[in-house]
Write a protein that binds this DNA or RNA. Sequence first.
RNA 1: GCCGCGGUAGCUCAGUGGUAGAGCACUGGUCUGAAAAACCAGGUGUCGUUGGUUCGAUCCCAACCCGCGGCA
Length: 320
Amino acid sequence: MSQEQLKPITLMGANASGKTEIALALAHRLSGEIISADSKQIYKFLAAGTAKPAGAWAEPPAGRAYLVEGIPYNLVDTLDPRATYDAGSFVKEAKAVLVKIQAGGKTPVMAGGTGMYIQAFWNGIDELPPADAALREKLAAVARSSGKEALHAELAAIDPQAALRIPPGNIQRVIRAIEITRLAGRPVSQIWSGRFFNALPVHDGKFIFLKWQRDLLAQRIKRRTAARFDEWADETRALIAKGYPADCPGLKTLGYPQVLDYLAGRLSKPEAIRLITASSLAYAKRQNTWFGRYKNAMLIELTKFEDYDPAAIADRIIAS
RNA sequence: GCCGCGGUAGCUCAGUGGUAGAGCACUGGUCUGAAAAACCAGGUGUCGUUGGUUCGAUCCCAACCCGCGGCA
């Protein structure tokens, strides 16, 4: 196996675009292992709701692995839904996995739809203070009592540059900017190096963006949501029965709030499916906007259903 | 058949005698440890149809069409 063949393949695309099947086809052909770049499939017990690839945990002598079609699928099904996860953790873990895969003489295939994680992985992220839940809650309380504008003004007072870049309505980012500035002791705008944004990802290997024509993707999402809804409802009911709070990080995932509303009788099944489909589509739009920036990615456009042939697409990627 | 209510954006609806607006949807975009998150921008229209009154009607009047409810 040459060094060239051990270079990673990064496969990006919106939800329901069929990345998993293509990644598996690639792994079969290249003797590869998959690294999932997905902020929600990382959680245990969220399967139907996150379209987690169906697999099983194996405990071979070589080590514990989640296997899908016999292929190790890394960074899925490992985290408790009560735990938080973030881009920094992903970068650290994914880098370790990448090294491990290559050391084993296999080809890493990174597949996922979480653009921020993929970008953080390739561009790196600046050394920033980690999240401080207590501080965040304090700042959120300020926004609740005095308003978002007041919190934004607080940011403007300590870092006018950052305040210009972040709209007052985006309270999450306002809080994060204040958090960094306070914890680091200097303005966040001076800490941002610009390496994360303002640059195309400096990737190694192949860099692929799988893009469906919108109306076709809408049909795929609609079909998939309806098909797995009952299983999704069972899964969610079981989580609540196990004592997981409805607002824990794992359940703060697209669609679960609607499923919870359905379980509570606040939404009918067709209505829940309609709402979930709509927000999945909105999410797909954001994903495509994100990946669309990557002019250095190989674009695979799917404009009819027949275009989706995982084996053929895998061959095309390998030949590129 | 009669009575009542309604017909305005893709949907649910607000509104005015000077050609119209909200929420959601939709379109484009932003993004540094919550990212399946959190945001920013954009109104896309035969105001059911046809007449009448008026300088001017989406609004007032009449007839008609359609929907819902009630009475027959």
